[in-house]
Amino acid sequence: MKLYAAALMVVLPCLAATPDVDKNRAIGFPTAPVKLEIFSDFTCPHCRVLHETVLPQLKSDYVVNGKVYIVDRAFPLTGAGHEHSREAFEYAVAAARIGKYQQVADALYAQQATWAIGGNVWAAVASALPSPADQKKVQALAKDPGVLAEIEAEYQEAIAIGLNQTPTLVLTVGGKHYNLPPAPDYRLLKSMIDGFLPK
């Protein structure tokens, strides 16, 4: 019994530290040997570059064939230039609840230069949601305590593992985590992933 209790004491904190994956904000197969978590911010220019250039390559090279599972994580930045970060995440995570995360994320990055300065986040989000019914749902869900809690939990997780900039990629293979430097060159990222995959 004592041994069982001791084992529980070891295992429970680990389980608590492993955040749930919001499947609507992930792409690929959860069974993939490599998991790549991307902690990003919709107002960060390097995150836009990663989203628009590196991510499509990753998808075609590793996601479609089930080798890499990509999970988006919220790391809303604070301070000047990032005043609308959290609001953008509220809409994006709300859109994930109705299966429209990728469309909203694409629109937020594509129109980053406009809303990140002007503050009209909703205009960018709405442009990705042609259906008025979807728009209504997302606006309501953006205020949902569950959505706000998910963003805060991911932000706190990022802080807890020592992240301080975006985009930060955390690669997990066989339970081991590697925090990659921000915005790595795709050729090096490819070498790293290939090194973990069976030849």
């Binding site: 590697y178 990659l180 430097p181 921000p182 915005a183 790595p184 060159d185 090096l188 990222l189 070498s191 790293m192 090194g195 973990f196």
Partner: peptide, 13 residues
Amino acid sequence: RDPWPLFAMGIDS
């Protein structure tokens, strides 16, 4: 201890 591309990314940055 880590795979070489990890340090390579650091150098490249």
